[in-house]
Structure formats: C-alpha cells, structure tokens
Design a protein around this nucleic acid. Structure first.
Lengths: 175, 175
DNA sequence: CTGTCAAATGCAACTTGTTGCATAAGGCTA
DNA sequence: TAGCCTTATGCAACAAGTTGCATTTGACAG
C-alpha cells in the first residue's frame, strides 16, 4: 500500500508522468522512498484501473508519448484515508547486524572492506543531504509548517546517518 | 537471500527446528531480523531441497513431530560466500516521512495520535534493548570479540532509537 | 559511423513477504 | 465444559519488489 500512498502524495502536489516521478524519486524524495521504473509504471496503471488516477496521453513528435497522471476524487479520498490511519510497524531487517552474529566466520579482510564501503556510502548520503538542505532549506525560519515538515525528515536522516558513522568508526577502530 | 543467510547463521550456531528459530527471532535476534512462521517453514524446506540443510524428524508423543535442521557442508560454504561478499544497499522506504510530505492534508489529530503511538513503540523498543543488555551483556569488558560483536549491534540499535525519540519529541513540541 | 546516454514506456518471469486458514493435543482459566 | 494458549507444522492465494529484456528517437562523444 505504501508505494501507492507515495504516488498519491507526489501526484497530488503536481500531476506528472511515471518518468517525472522517477526523477523526483532521485531528487528530494530519495530519502523517503525509492522504486524502480518498472514498479512505478505498473503501479500507476493499476491505480488508474482502480479509479484513483486519470491518465492523459500527450503525443510528442520525436519522443515516445507522455502519459500524464492526475488524482481523481477517489484518489484524494484514498490518500486522506491512508493519512488518517496509523502506520503499522515494519519488520526489522538488518543484514549487516546478521553478519555481526557470525563474527567468527566473517574473514577480517571482508569485514574491513565492508566497513570501509559502508562508511563511504554513509558519507555520500550526508553529502546528498547537505546538498538538498542548501538547495531547499537554506533558511528554515522562514518556512511554512508544510514546508518545514520535509525539512524535519531531512534533519532526522542526517542525525541517524551521523549516528551510524560514529558507530562504524568505533567498531572499525576496535577491530 | 538475506533470510537464508540469517537462517544459516542461527543454525550454524546451533541446530534447531523452525519453531526454535521463531523463538530466537522473538528474543535476541529480534533487533536483527523478523519473519513469520510461514516464511520460516517454507524457506527451511527450500534450503533442504537445495542441499544446504539436513532434516531429522524427531517423533514426539503428545506433540507434533519436531523437524531438526542442521547445516550441511554446502550450507557452511553458502554462509561463507555470503559473508565474503559485500552487502548491497537496501532501498529507502520511510512511510512516516511520506506523511510529512503531505502535511497539509494530514489532520492534526491523526498526526498527534501517530506521534504518540510511535514514541510509545520506540520506548518499548528501548525497554527490550535494556532487557537484552541486562540478560546477555551485563559486563561488556569480559566479552570475547565474537560475543562483543552482537553487543555492538545492540548499542547501535539503542542509539538510533534514542535519536528517533529525541526527534519525535522535538516535532511533537513544535507542532 | 559506432556506441552510449537520455527521454519515455512497458512485459514477463521470478523471488520475497503477507494473510488467511488448517491441524492436533495438552494445559489453563472462567 | 467451553474457549483460549502453547507447541509444532504447513498449504494456498495474494501483494510487493527484483531482474532481465525490449522499443524508439535524438544528441553527443570518440
């Protein structure tokens, strides 16, 4: 259901095509949700089938046609219903932690590589966050509550990632 | 693949039945991996089919039979292969963040309820962590590296959860 | 002039995870 | 004595996510 909800949210803010949404996923929405183009196109078509979206095909010369999706009244209602009901907790799945539980069989070199690569990923993520913050939230005091909300999510993402980095570095140092 | 890996790890430490593993999942492994009994039984049977596990049926009077699974050599090898190769990054999926992106349509009351329930979950998680810490890691200095590793995962879990709690409280206060 | 990238869409097969239901016997509680 | 909990296993249908492949045109690099 959650992919649906995310699509309802982005299309409610602004109608668009599968490709558009993919770009949004790569930009600011990247720390909220990620999905492949296959998944998007399939889900959009299903949502249209379920009456949550309308689809308008804009023919283009020199390019494949664009299919612009837009919320219907049923779509807006579905979104409101989803917002109103509390989220269920998602199951814990931490493959990295699993490796820690097999410490004896985990070769030292592989371990080091894993930690290094992982820290690099985390630091790249921090760079991305910083870029988003600069571009969209340069002065947080002037934001409206609705604009402030996504800023909060970014702040948390940053703090969590920092916590991860500290931890990996501690583990690496000790190892 | 990761569920497989987790099963290989737990069964390598000690052979057991699907039900046993389910209990381990509820106890110390709960902050690493969670899965339903249906998933476990199905996966165990497939792994046996793939030659990673052997299965011995212990008949019990007055109870359904127990099927004790144990790693084969191929199973140990599969585990080592998995440990040696670096983990791929898992896609971001944060339904709560998604709601923040629909702030205007998210009714205040639903928001408050969500935050309160969420904070409660986080605090319960912290309680669980504390219990695990008391039971298994009461004096960390005396641990061997292999015992120390899962303790690290617990520490990170704790810190991340604390970060979440701080954040939710900030957001609640501001809202 | 060949290859790759970007724009734009999609199908098909597969794996993974969820939900609902089922069985069977003993113990415990109202 | 009826109903639920625990032990112990599973099937079947479905939903969600992944992987591999395919199409069309223009632009740009080597």
């Amino acid at each position: 259901m959650s992919l649906r909800a995310v699509l309802l949210i982005t299309l409610q803010r602004e109608p668009g095509t599968g490709y558009d949404i993919l770009q949004r996923f790569k930009a600011g929405l990247a720390h909220v949700w990620q999905a492949s183009h296959q998944q998007l196109y399939r889900e959009l078509d299903r949502m249209r089938g379920d009456g949550l979206l309308t689809c308008e095909t804009l023919p283009q010369t020199e390019r494949p046609d664009r299919k612009v999706y837009q919320l219907t009244e049923a779509g807006r209602q579905a979104l409101d219903t989803w917002l109103a009901e509390p989220l269920s907790t998602s199951p814990v799945r931490q493959p990295l932690f699993a490796k820690f539980f097999a410490w004896e069989r985990w070769p030292e070199e592989a371990r080091r590589k894993e930690f290094t690569a992982f820290r690099k990923q985390l630091q790249e993520r921090l760079t991305t966050y910083a870029a988003i913050e600069r571009e969209w939230f340069s002065n947080p005091e002037t934001l409206t509550p609705a604009q402030r909300a996504p800023w909060h999510t970014l702040r948390l993402g940053k703090r969590l990632t920092e916590t991860w980095v500290e931890w990996v570095e501690e583990v690496m140092e000790e190892d």
